[in-house]
C-alpha cells in the first residue's frame, strides 16, 4: 500500500548568518567612515598611509557632518 504524507515546516526566524554578515558590515563601515586614520591602507601601503590619510580625507566632510570627532 502506498501513501503520501505532507509536512509543512514554517521558517521565519532571523538567520544567524545574515545577522553576522550585517554586523560585520556595520562595524567595518562605521570604522571606515568614522575612525580610520590610515589603518586600512597601512595593511598594503605601510606607515606612509598614516601620513597620506586617504580614507580620512575622503570621509572628512561626512565625519564632521554626521557628528564624529575629527581633528
Amino acid at each position: 500500500m502506498s501513501y503520501s504524507e505532507a509536512v509543512t515546516v514554517s521558517k521565519s526566524s532571523v538567520p544567524i548568518l545574515a545577522v553576522v554578515i550585517l554586523a560585520v558590515i556595520f562595524g567595518f563601515g562605521l570604522f571606515l567612515v568614522g575612525y580610520d586614520q590610515g589603518h586600512l591602507f597601512s595593511i598594503i601601503q605601510g606607515a606612509e598611509a598614516f601620513d597620506d590619510l586617504f580614507i580620512h580625507e575622503l570621509t572628512h566632510d561626512m565625519r564632521h557632518a554626521a557628528g564624529f570627532p575629527c581633528h
Binding site: V14, A18, V19, L22, A23, I25, F26, G27, F28, G29, L30, L32, V33, G34, E57, L58, T59, H60, D61, M62, R63, A65, A66
Partner: peptide, 27 residues
C-alpha cells in the same frame, strides 16, 4: 576630494548603519 567623498561616505555610512537597523528591525 573631500567634497566628492560626501556622497560616497554617505553611501558607506548609510549602508553600515542600515545594516544595524535591519538586524534590529528583523528581531
Amino acid at each position: 576630494w573631500q567634497k566628492g567623498g560626501q556622497v560616497l561616505a554617505g553611501a558607506i555610512l548609510g549602508t553600515s548603519v542600515g545594516a544595524l537597523f535591519g538586524i534590529i528591525f528583523a528581531f
